[in-house]
Computed example of a mutant assay.
Amino acid sequence: MMIGWGIQDETKKGLVRMFSAYRHAENSTLFAAALLGMFGIFLEGLFYFGIYRLMAERSQKQAHNFRTGIIGYIVFGPCGFHVPICMMLFLYRSLTEAGAENVLETVEQFADYFIAPSLILFWIFFLILEGTQISAFLKGKTPYPKRCFVFSLPVGMLIAKLFNIFGNHAFVNAIDCAWISVGNIWMFAGLLFMMKKAQAE
């Protein structure tokens, strides 16, 4: 949210329009966001082992698949996804301010060569992680009621994206930029809220 708190230039399109909301971010802000995200995503991954324990007793197969997803999330999320994105924003802003030519082309090449490989791997493990979690909840492989599958990362991320209906505002763009973190807050808060129900089970 530190990076995304800005207004998009509506005269631009695509990646350039998205980046225009991040122009305000100073080097110190980008560094702080990269550092916080690096440790934050790692901690999120560790917290997923709490969900792993929920399904371990009822389905070893589901738990094993979920653990695989956790490992990929921890390995590729912080330094393979989050930090390089902050690097790309720094590169775009610095080249733009320097008046360099072909800024967008350079940034896209950087993304293709240095971000895409780890980003693809991150999303593969993400799909394993969340697919397994939703499946385990729907099949009753956890102590939680089946309907608690809604307390999952994809649902929370979708809720964050729905804020875009409120238009081009700094708060909306900040939430949109932090959609994965918002998804985690939704998921963990919901599961903690329903914990007494699960304990009763």
Score class of each variant (00 low, 15 high):
193 F>H: 06
101 E>A: 14
185 I>H: 03
61 K>Q: 12
27 N>I: 00
44 E>N: 10
71 I>F: 12
98 A>E: 14
24 H>P: 01
132 T>P: 03
183 G>W: 02
131 G>E: 04
43 L>C: 07
73 Y>H: 15
90 F>L: 14
30 L>P: 02
92 Y>P: 05
94 S>V: 06
104 L>H: 06
130 E>W: 04
87 M>D: 09
44 E>Y: 12
60 Q>V: 10
117 P>Y: 07
154 P>W: 04
40 G>S: 11
40 G>E: 10
40 G>D: 10
12 K>T: 00
29 T>R: 10
85 I>F: 14
68 T>Q: 15
150 V>A: 07
130 E>R: 01
197 K>E: 13
111 A>T: 07
169 H>P: 00
46 L>E: 08
196 K>P: 00
67 R>T: 12
46 L>I: 12
168 N>H: 05
103 V>P: 07
21 A>K: 09
63 A>Q: 09
99 G>F: 09
27 N>M: 06
9 D>A: 13
185 I>S: 06
100 A>N: 09
20 S>E: 04
139 K>Q: 11
199 Q>M: 12
42 F>C: 11
5 W>P: 00
25 A>T: 01
149 F>C: 05
5 W>V: 01
32 A>I: 15
161 K>C: 02
60 Q>C: 02
197 K>F: 00
167 G>S: 04
198 A>M: 03
11 T>C: 00
28 S>Q: 04
52 Y>F: 14
197 K>S: 11
